[in-house]
Nucleic acid binder design. Sequence first.
DNA 1: CGAGATTTTGAAAAATTTCAACATTCGTGG
DNA 2: CCACGAATGTTGAAATTTTTCAAAATCTCG
Lengths: 203, 203
Amino acid sequence: MTIHLTAFHQQADRMAPAPLAFFAPGEEIYAQGERCGSLYRVEFGAVRVYRLLADGRRQISAFYLAGETFGFEADDTHHFFAEAINATGIQVLRKAHGANLASELLPLALQVLVRAQEHMLVLGRQNAVERIAVFLTEMSERQGGLRLIELPMSRTDIGDYLGLTIETVSRAFTKLKQSGVIKLQGLRNVEIVKWQVLSDMAS
Amino acid sequence: MTIHLTAFHQQADRMAPAPLAFFAPGEEIYAQGERCGSLYRVEFGAVRVYRLLADGRRQISAFYLAGETFGFEADDTHHFFAEAINATGIQVLRKAHGANLASELLPLALQVLVRAQEHMLVLGRQNAVERIAVFLTEMSERQGGLRLIELPMSRTDIGDYLGLTIETVSRAFTKLKQSGVIKLQGLRNVEIVKWQVLSDMAS
DNA sequence: CGAGATTTTGAAAAATTTCAACATTCGTGG
DNA sequence: CCACGAATGTTGAAATTTTTCAAAATCTCG
């Protein structure tokens, strides 16, 4: 794959020196407990940000796709882990300190916040099929509202994002397939056949 | 109850005209869909911020206690409802636009964000007793780490915050009581008897 | 093409919800 | 200040959903 660096550099904003970093599938971007001083913008690929319980239970708080910014923290320490899901390019935005910077970051942080708050409704109050419906709707909207969507992540990741086991995720996919709402072409390509039905399920 | 207005006014920061508003128990502070242009700081009392599904299922995304700021939104529209839980005093911080303002708001927004992300782990991956343990630990920490805590909210609110039914909340409280981890003095006063055990449960 | 990894399916177990009844608490008016 | 009634909370039992454990199927990639 040829990567056109210039294209990325043109997108770079005035936030500071913004080196482009490459990550292999599964590679750690940062870990809980590490010091932080940067934000990260996905240029291509996908990232999962998660937290662990002592016994290994994992909750993915968000996926980040191309164009999205992550790495916001309340203090100088990372409270989460971040890993590349696939081969991923990331622009590291070194945090400078200044008022005009905060005014650029606040809207990005607020978008992450609103999404997190909306996801709480899913985790707290929706059943398995509804969760998958929300997830597919979200992924479609984030990929431009297309009916054909590509899932960059595994069923395990989807489960850990939606608070379900991999088996329950699989069964929910099966139900949506059997009711003709979606079609699968391979494991990671989903066609949304009945958009309105899926949308309604997501409430 | 006598309210010392001067004390509150001394706490006012330089954000702008900050009138103190009073809300009765259950009174709406703002509604989903309303335009927003203010932030809110709780002076006394408690607030719940929540979202609803079409069929009435409710998820409380956060409680806000004295000293805490809420009302952050990504655009100019409220995506959530906010209500006073009890008699509550709130400072309305009218949003001005400017860089120095954003630099003051960002840390507050980030604190809300981190808390939201941590709550996702609870909603997605912890069982009923663990959720109550987390909740009590949180409430204690937010009230200064005391062993005697006062819950300003009902069991229904707790359930809607933790993604549980009121009955499951009640049963979890009963289990914690029976195992000697907590004691109840009335419904809303909890004594944490075995701090470490509770803490460990919360993981 | 084949081996390992991932996903799907089935059946039983566990956790939570639902529905119903009972108990307790709280606020108000006598 | 007590008693009453409504609101809130607790408990029990059955139903439902999800998880767990196990095995079979499918996919991916070298």
